[in-house]
Write a protein that binds this DNA or RNA. Sequence first.
DNA 1: ATTTTTAAGATCGTGTACAATCTGATCTCA
DNA 2: TGAGATCAGATTGTACACGATCTTAAAAAT
Lengths: 241, 241
Amino acid sequence: MTKEAGKPAREADKAADKAKGSKARAVADALTLAVHEHRLAPGLKLNEDEVGEIFGVGRTIVRSALQMLAHDQLVTIEPNRGAFVAEPSIREAREVFEARALLEPRTARSAAERITPQDVATLRAHNAAEHAALDRGDFGMAVRLSGEFHIELARIADQSTIAEFIAQLIARSSLVVALYWRRPKAMCETHAHEALLTALEQGDGATAEELMKGHLLDLLSSLDLRETPAAPRTLRDALRP
Amino acid sequence: MTKEAGKPAREADKAADKAKGSKARAVADALTLAVHEHRLAPGLKLNEDEVGEIFGVGRTIVRSALQMLAHDQLVTIEPNRGAFVAEPSIREAREVFEARALLEPRTARSAAERITPQDVATLRAHNAAEHAALDRGDFGMAVRLSGEFHIELARIADQSTIAEFIAQLIARSSLVVALYWRRPKAMCETHAHEALLTALEQGDGATAEELMKGHLLDLLSSLDLRETPAAPRTLRDALRP
DNA sequence: ATTTTTAAGATCGTGTACAATCTGATCTCA
DNA sequence: TGAGATCAGATTGTACACGATCTTAAAAAT
């Protein structure tokens, strides 16, 4: 009996599951969450020793986690310089939304065809939480929940490969929003999500696809992606705050 | 100052080849290439010490490279067990082609709108090399070149984010082909590529999009993705669905 | 005073050693 | 003989130390 008998509750084991997967994954997930909630500003330097100290792990773990994030383009690793929270260029920002425009509308249609009442309940809960966060003024949490809505949709569509891509794009979108957000008139977003939700609930795939397409265009148009003059955006300047 | 006299010796060639990326990237690229050429069979165990010995690097580098490949789902890392060349399930195989169907046709259209004579020349060279490899009976090289055709197309479309996704999907497609290929009547592929090339050369985006869509469907239909594959690859896979 | 040089400090890249874990085989007992 | 326990070998997970490289800033020379 070297091992505990059986496997206990699945939901309660979530934390243990991550710890078991690997500490590096746990650190990477924590950092990703922080990016989703806009708690890590683009350009911030992520010192390996410092991060390791915070999470109580060695530098090896931190390095592994940072490499994961670098692969998702959430951080950029400059050789012999260190890791920094990524600062997506305007071009990259456009590319991210271009990719989302290719993936998400069709995925929303698929989701509409397979959605279950349970899924609807989950999404409604997400929506409610997002509203609550906005009313509370917790913009970070609102951005995170808004992104999770899209990720959950991809998961419902039962296409884990595409869902993985979308998750990456959502994370990068959080950085894009942090950099190029125009005005806090984002409230339309939650309404867009609600309209989507009703279409999904009725199994109306075509409408869901169109709504998602429009939603992404709205999001894109709410950004300020004009070319910055002379681009004085060096890392040194970015680190000045 | 005298950098050349420092420590060139045996690593000079590799340093010149991948001067920018680290050694880990070089190892990862080499392994990826081997997968593309069907030189690494799915399910093969990649012993860290062994790989390190082959490439003349330490286990740290190998570990980093394997983590990169694991992120691309080219290898699966089982905790305390090691790394194995991935064996995509039938479901994963379908998902890969589903994702390609979403990304590549529209990307082909974009490529047609931006393609330059230089790009056409490059693609023609690729095509010729693919034909030559097939005539020579070098199927591994043919598969690799066929994949690179698609990747190059995405690059021409000037959407590096989407190109990155497609590159991942192509790599996984190589594994899928290795596992589920039906018959060596793949010659249609090269003709499909040639038809695409002419459409691209004429800037006919709509035709290119349609051709790509059909090409991907042909590819998918040339696989044997029946739910009951007579070949449960390994006992481990059979026991761990 | 400005520019170049130089040195110090800090950070990252890599190899190596040790601990944890798994696999496979041997041994014991019914 | 067969099932279960135990142990040796091997492999991965992690921490740590040393060397390489970059940044920073002071100091010296023009």
